[in-house]
């Protein structure tokens, strides 16, 4: 299970990095064609918008694996022991419910519905674009199931906010180091 999660996260990570680099290049290309060559590109705006949407949804799925989506933990995280375990499992169940209803069921329906529609600039079937919604839904559900498995198996469940705080302080440590270095 843990291994599967690591593999899936790594795959998503790499895809996200590639897509982010891709939209950065397309974005730069669009500006260059518009200002330098004065020949605006019609295709790049649509390409950019849909690639960005794919990136955002895939990255969102990735963050579900890490359980780092924005939440309000000030009350829930006060609990400990088994109460905290079940609160977190409940939360994961709702994540799975949302992914199943909206992303997979609804996403599959909209993908089917738009089979005959085409996008305006690229002229590809709209369903090819919408299909990312159910795909991400599958990832989210897999991560949800693995997270529940981990929560059930863990000897002690730690509050998520504690985890988040270490993340922030790690980040600021990085910042500090970089600045000292940049000062030379």
């Amino acid at each position: 299970m843990i291994k599967l999660k690591n593999i899936l996260t790594k795959i998503l990570e790499v895809i996200c990095v590639i897509m982010f680099a891709f939209i950065t290049i397309v974005g730069t290309y669009q500006i260059v064609t518009r200002y330098v060559f004065n020949a605006p590109s019609t295709v790049s705006e649509e390409l950019l918008t849909y690639s960005f949407t794919w990136l955002a949804l895939l990255a969102a799925a990735l963050v579900f694996a890490k359980r780092e989506h924005m939440r309000m933990g000030f009350l829930a995280d006060k609990f400990s022991g088994n109460a905290l375990r079940w609160i977190y499992i409940f939360s994961e169940l709702l994540v799975i419910l949302f992914a199943a209803l909206i992303m997979i069921y609804g996403g599959t329906s909209i993908t089917k519905l738009t089979m005959t529609q085409v996008t305006a600039s690229l002229g590809i079937p709209m369903s090819m674009i919408y299909v990312i919604v159910p795909i991400c839904g599958i990832f989210v559900i897999l991560f949800g199931v693995i997270n529940i498995y981990e929560l059930l198996r863990a000897k002690e469940v730690k509050p998520l906010s504690a985890k988040k705080e270490t993340v922030i302080s790690n980040k600021s440590a990085v910042v500090q180091k970089a600045i000292v270095k940049g000062d030379k």
Partner: peptide, 11 residues
């Protein structure tokens, strides 16, 4: 759901 600490987007 927010008070239960469910991710805001899911809530």
């Amino acid at each position: 759901l927010l008070l239960a600490g469910v991710p805001i987007s899911i809530s």
